[in-house]
Design a protein around this nucleic acid. Structure first.
Lengths: 142, 142
DNA sequence: CTGCAGATGCAACCGAATTGCAGAAGCAAC
DNA sequence: GTTGCTTCTGCAATTCGGTTGCATCTGCAG
């Protein structure tokens, strides 16, 4: 039985944390999103739920620490969050695509990230590949 | 005669700008640096020269716009600047290495960045590879 | 039901970067 | 050299994403 079969609340408890409304809501949102969301995106999506800015930051921090989400910094120096693959073995390799037109960031889980040869004495622990360009939707109009 | 044979001041004027002390100083600094510097690094290095923070930001912006430097955002969401290779043909591909111990960022100009296959409809204009790990110096102590 | 570790809300704060504007200084033309 | 226009600089204030301190609240185990 994989983590997907559990309710969000149960998944949260399985991680040793309390199943609070904020955590459930953010987890649902991130699970449903096919792209990396900013804190602002999340704040907007959950507007009306009455969650505080800070609470959302803390939920996101907790998710990153727990390994169920990861955080990337985009070129505009804002954090973006995306769900980690539930069966993620090694999440030291990851590719993201940022569309220059719509600004959205997509997780390219199927793009292989190869660990390049490094100068002598250097060792790598994580590799991040950031691609900029036009996404499937915006590319059609250009 | 390549750009390297010109004095910094002449290189600046060749780009259609005024050769001011701030521009010359930052250009020299970046040319001499083997790694990507933050605005703070530069501020520190030029301390005593009396340049204003904002002036340095503007010089850096100008250098990026002129194509003689490029800007990357590190994981701590601060900008880092490195000189662009003088003979740079296509700087859409670039690799950076950030040491987890000392925090320094190195430009890996010799690491090939391959353009990966993208989902249907997507097109890439720039590829950025960020590697995290231990640099040659810090790796020895661990 | 109760107790309490853990989570939330609020307000204040931080640091990197940006903006507006008056004054200073390159540099080309004389 | 001097002049004059344009660009650049310095200062102060502002923005914005993110963080911190602390009092209050709430999941949830017992």
């Amino acid at each position: 039985m994989s983590a997907d079969d559990l309710t969000p609340a149960d998944r949260i408890r399985a991680l040793g944390a309390r199943a609070t409304p904020a955590r459930v809501a953010v987890m649902r949102l991130l699970d449903a999103a096919e792209r990396a969301l900013t804190h602002h995106d999340i704040e907007l999506a959950l507007e009306g739920s009455g969650f505080d800015r800070v609470t959302l930051y803390r939920v996101l921090d907790w998710m990153v620490e727990s390994g169920i989400a990861h955080r990337v910094t985009d070129a505009q120096r804002v954090f973006r969050f995306s769900k980690a693959a539930t069966d993620a073995p090694a999440h030291d390799r990851h590719a993201h695509f940022r569309c220059e037109d719509c600004g959205k960031v997509f997780c390219l889980d199927d793009v292989p990230v190869t660990r390049p040869a490094l100068p002598k004495g250097f060792s790598s622990s994580a590799v991040e590949l950031s691609i900029t360009g036009h996404c499937g939707h915006c590319g059609k109009h250009s």
